[in-house]
Design a protein around this nucleic acid. Structure first.
Lengths: 218, 218
DNA sequence: GAAAGTATGTTGTTATAACAACATTTTTGA
DNA sequence: TCAAAAATGTTGTTATAACAACATACTTTC
């Protein structure tokens, strides 16, 4: 196992390669190779292991009610997945994970890890979980308005606040942005153009400017 | 401070009243009284403290882009909030928190808490964060279909799977359910009736039965 | 730098949800 | 138990998004 690499990841930050080796040993962590398109986690299964991609990449996907599969995210080297399921204990996975290419995955049993009692890694897990939490909350905030315009405004208000000015870069292609906001791509394009005509926004490629600001009170 | 009560909460589970007192001492935790409608956390502010309601209750709310405030959740005695912000470190709050009545709130500085090095409480935070994570992910899954029917089916499929049969209780009033799914209440009512006419579901008050099942593959 | 591929924008049509106003049922509490 | 209030259901109208099909612009890459 490449402890150098592993100790360099977010999750193991603050730990030396040697400490990393120790922790993984104590908690019976192991790696497994997956061929392209091989399933890492099955939809509806239960796991007590967090997983980290060491080499390759993993697609996280989910079928809708009618069976159409959509990709939720792609996990690359050093990134983790399934840890929320592992710590929450007993919840069925609402996604499946599939190796997008030949991949090596590290499995860490969270029960054993908690036993090990290493505080640094618990801290790191906690920070990771909290950040994921806020990302999810943000997405909910950005997609709860019922109109495309409402969603765009919520999202842009966030980006704008984040950038510290009224100008910002959207870190998505139009299709990805539409996906993120759960709206149709062409409808999004149309709405953006309409908002531009109305003087609410200006844009050029992915650089946007928000010409109005959030109404607070009354 | 009522250490008996605090040690009985989820967050302090596994800790005696005495241990609880110690941890709170070490980490400089303090309580504060809030009058009805007094603000506990301001929208857009930054906190390094997790908060727990000891007495009373707190409304978590958020204004949309046009200023209309909606209630995200209500926090009661023993429940926590703002901990994701505290652990993620430096993120601006996307909600505000207001005392719904005269309330006593416990503030725990997470930096100090991490210093204390108590593993039990870290575990508890981690489990809490993971469970919240899955709840948020689930909500995203339930609201990403573009039609009311799609959302209802996703939600019902979950409830049904959870109940272990095709019959289940919806733990919301119709208005709350509509809110959860981010759709109009009357439109939801209409869609439920339509689905009943089509034989897709049966229901009587909040007891539902799902007559179709998720299509997997092809 | 031409051709192919991909991303983005446009427009018209259709499906669906929001909204509003009201009817009916259920719950509450005096 | 009755009246009032709250929740739920119904229906028609209007606003909006999805969808489809195509035009245009940008980006590979050979």
């Amino acid at each position: 196992m490449d402890y150098e690499f592993i100790s360099g990841t977010e999750l193991f930050s603050g730990l030396s390669a040697e400490e990393t080796r120790e922790i993984l040993n104590i908690s019976y962590a192991y790696t497994k190779l997956f061929g392209k398109e091989e399933t890492v986690f099955e939809l509806g299964s239960v796991t007590s292991c967090a997983a980290m991609v060491l080499c390759g990449s993993v697609r996280v996907e989910r079928p809708d009610f009618y069976g159409t599969v959509s990709i939720i995210s792609t996990i690359g080297p050093g990134e983790m997945f399934a840890e929320a399921y592992a710590f929450a204990h007993g919840e069925k996975m609402m996604v499946s994970a599939v190796a997008a290419e030949e991949s090596e995955i590290l499995f860490i049993d969270t029960e054993a890890l908690l036993e090990s009692g290493n505080i640094t890694i618990l801290k790191n897990f906690l920070k990771d979980a909290s950040m994921k939490n806020l990302r999810l909350s943000r997405k909910i905030v950005h997609t709860s308005p019922k109109t495309i315009r409402g969603r765009v405004l919520e999202y842009f208000a966030y980006l704008s606040q984040n950038a510290g000015g009224n100008e910002f870069i959207v870190p998505f292609s139009r299709s990805r942005m539409a996906e993120y906001l759960s709206v149709d791509r062409s409808a999004l394009s149309a709405e953006l153009s309409k908002m531009r005509r109305e003087g609410i926004i200006e844009f050029e490629k992915n650089r946007f400017r928000l010409m109005v600001s959030r109404r607070v009170l009354t």
